[in-house]
Design a protein around this nucleic acid. Sequence first.
DNA 1: GCGGGTCTTGCATTTTTATACAAAGTGTGC
DNA 2: GCACACTTTGTATAAAAATGCAAGACCCGC
Lengths: 157, 157
Amino acid sequence: MKNTRQRAILSLVASRPIHSQEELAHLLETQGYEVTQATVSRDVKELGLIKVPLKNGNGAGTHFKYVEPAFGKTYASRLHRVIAELVRDVKVSVNLIVLRTPPGSGMLLASAIDEAGWNEVVGTIGGDDTVLVVVSDPKFSPVVAQRFEDMRSEDPL
Amino acid sequence: MKNTRQRAILSLVASRPIHSQEELAHLLETQGYEVTQATVSRDVKELGLIKVPLKNGNGAGTHFKYVEPAFGKTYASRLHRVIAELVRDVKVSVNLIVLRTPPGSGMLLASAIDEAGWNEVVGTIGGDDTVLVVVSDPKFSPVVAQRFEDMRSEDPL
DNA sequence: GCGGGTCTTGCATTTTTATACAAAGTGTGC
DNA sequence: GCACACTTTGTATAAAAATGCAAGACCCGC
């Protein structure tokens, strides 16, 4: 049964680092689910699992771990609503990002962004219908700007 | 120069969906950076970029996009500190996760978790040195528990 | 039961990504 | 300049992941 298998996958990836879909397939086998890597690939996609590099990787071998992307999702779910609602326009200039908002909501948006504590963001200034986001290094500007764009339109993450 | 190239990569992935490292290599070429997929693979790893499935995928072709994992990172950086500091132990029972904390900090931790608004979490109850986290479905228990474990020890995301 | 949908899977293969290894580049002290 | 250590890259290849296709499973309504 596909459903219980995917449940097993969630449980497995939560319990230990898994380095490949092949490995996952083997682990599933030990639990009575006989599937191929192809099926695991589809499951991974459906569950929305993503492969993240392991930070403390000692260096040798493939060091990945599949994780549920819920972090990003739920993170976004709070700020996301504010941004989706208030951000009308996003413009970049070197290390500044200019957001336009409906009149009166600039301060609100600015403090919401402050609150989020993104580490590329040094600070924000909220006017009436404009928010200035100061980015720590120009190289991050496109990334942060894109993030605003994403949160404005897409589903979180 | 490696540094400017990686900068260009950050900018590229922020500006459009990119489906493979090969594609990225071609785009870099148009900007005067002549590199192979191998080098891109290394850059991607160093920058910590991850490949996420595109939600609104129309179905055909590989639909991925490289993103900076800053979402998860910054998200975690706030709650993370609280959890790293306060969570002493994590136990699971069906749809409940029991967290032990230093005496007196239960309520604090509980409200921090509430605040985070994880969507698998229905609610929390904070006692003196214990927090009960109620998960919406037992199938998410391992994932959420692991997340606590991760935030307790690892670097965010 | 039978025909026509939809869903799930494996097989075989392609596509994509990672890496071992060697070579070239860079810097430092002598 | 030369020797040495360290970094960065490409080549070739291995490893891992995605997918076209066909087969089987399942579910209806008739």
